[in-house]
Amino acid sequence: MARMIRVLVAKPGLDGHDRGAKVVANALKDAGMEVIYTGLHQTPEMIAESAVQEDVDIVGLSILSGAHMTMFPRVMELLKEKGAEHIVVFGGGIIPAEDVCRLEEMGVARIFGPGTDTGDIASFIKGSFPDTE
């Protein structure tokens, strides 16, 4: 039996713009994944701890507030501290090209910009875990 892909979709920061995060969570569910959605206003500590306890394969952060350069590195650092650096991190939001480059250098797997088709996100995730097929 193929194993299931487990994804954590998280919305860090103080803003309440969760439309994108919810749409993506639903789309990934419909693409056959187990999606853990943790709600709004998450701190990096909460996100990392949830990711570890849930043993997810991948974490998606939705960031529209401009705080991406603090949030992504912090979450990745905490995952490492908790012995879970194998968890892949990706994101979505309004993130300038220069920052996308810097985030990818830090190890963020992929940043999806505005107008992304949710099918592309699902394919990207499935492609990242060939052992699940």
């Binding site: 639903n26 990934l28 569910k29 419909d30 693409a31 056959g32 999606v35 959605y37 943790t38 709600g39």
Partner: peptide
């Protein structure tokens, strides 16, 4: 798939 939302 499943949407697991209890952590909220």
């Amino acid at each position: 798939g499943a949407l697991l939302g209890d952590r909220i």
